[in-house]
Design a protein around this nucleic acid. Structure first.
Length: 283
DNA sequence: CACTTCCCCTGCAAGC
DNA sequence: TGCTTGCAGGGGAAGT
């Protein structure tokens, strides 16, 4: 479940692999829903362009090209950006490593003009998105995003939260309000801030908002440091797992004791998503 | 406009 | 063992 920390970890690891290299080969799948820009146009926009930087906006990865264009990738639920190395597995225990055939879930393959590694975008559930932008152009999906969760200040966060009547959990998941927070870190932050996910956003006090933003940013930063959370599909570009799943206090811990008070963690469905919380610690 | 509900897609786990 | 069913969820679209 790639959220801000997983995308940021991917950005930091992918950038040194692609910055300064020129795209020389593009292979795409036939997925109709993944490509917001048709593959033929994507090819025109990318071939021969050098990657100058890899940036992040909320859960979007933006590959900035030297001609001002951008390749935008959203990992959705099960998206992975991996290098060819991620497909290398020993055929036999202790045997030589051999590249296995890329599977049907590879939707985009970027080859470069040099001999370095190829970059693959893999996404079994196809909830991810690939979008090409030419110089000077943006896209509604990017423009609609609220401030990045790591960059927003308390004043703006508090006033935006105060204006909403929906449950605070639903508000945290709304990318128009705040970009980057998903289901895992919303639950974790609400636990750390001791706020029930069902509480209406407008009922949070100024002090609640302060604790909540501090918890959101703290948990995001710790998760980045831990290499992100691997629950099912997220992997680093080299195929390795993140480490934050072992540090979750409520997410995926339904029925287990709260790490603070021992009360069993509860799970309810809220905003079409599962919300995990401690009924005693959180109010 | 704010908010809710439905739905996309596949792999995996649980149940029979 | 092998089938069916249900569940996971980011977020856009449509509905209220």
């Amino acid at each position: 479940v790639p959220e801000l920390p997983e995308v940021e970890v991917t950005r930091r690891r992918v950038a040194p692999l692609v910055v300064g290299r020129t795209i020389a080969e593009i292979t795409t799948s036939a997925s109709r829903r993944l490509f917001l820009t048709p593959p033929s146009r994507l090819r025109q926009q990318l071939l021969g362009r050098r990657v100058d930087a890899v940036e992040r906006l909320g859960k979007y990865l933006l590959f900035r090209l030297h001609d001002g264009g951008r390749l935008c990738v959203h990992l959705g639920m099960t998206g992975q950006l991996v290098t060819s190395n991620a497909f290398e597995r020993p055929c036999t225990p202790g045997g030589t490593r051999r590249r296995t055939a890329p599977d049907r879930h590879i939707h985009l393959e970027l080859g470069f003009a040099d001999t370095g590694p190829t970059l693959f975008f893999r996404d079994p559930r196809q909830f991810g998105r690939v979008l090409g932008l030419t110089a000077g152009h943006s896209h509604l999906r990017l423009e609609r995003l609220g401030p990045d969760a790591l960059a927003i200040g308390l004043g703006e966060f508090a006033s935006r939260v105060r204006a909403r009547r929906a449950p605070i959990k639903a508000v945290l998941l709304d990318q128009k309000l705040l970009a980057g927070v998903g289901n895992i870190y919303a639950d974790e932050a609400l636990f750390l801030a001791r706020v029930l996910p069902t509480r209406r956003a407008c009922r949070l006090t100024r002090e609640d908002s302060r604790r909540l933003l501090s918890a959101v940013q703290g948990v995001l930063r710790r998760a980045i440091r831990a290499g992100g959370t691997t629950v099912s599909d997220f992997v680093h570009p080299d195929g390795s797992d993140g480490g934050f799943q072992r540090r979750c206090r409520v997410y995926g811990r339904e029925g287990q004791g709260c790490t603070r008070c021992g009360t069993p963690i509860r799970r309810v469905v809220l905003a079409q998503r599962s919300a995990h919380f401690c009924p005693r610690c959180q109010q």
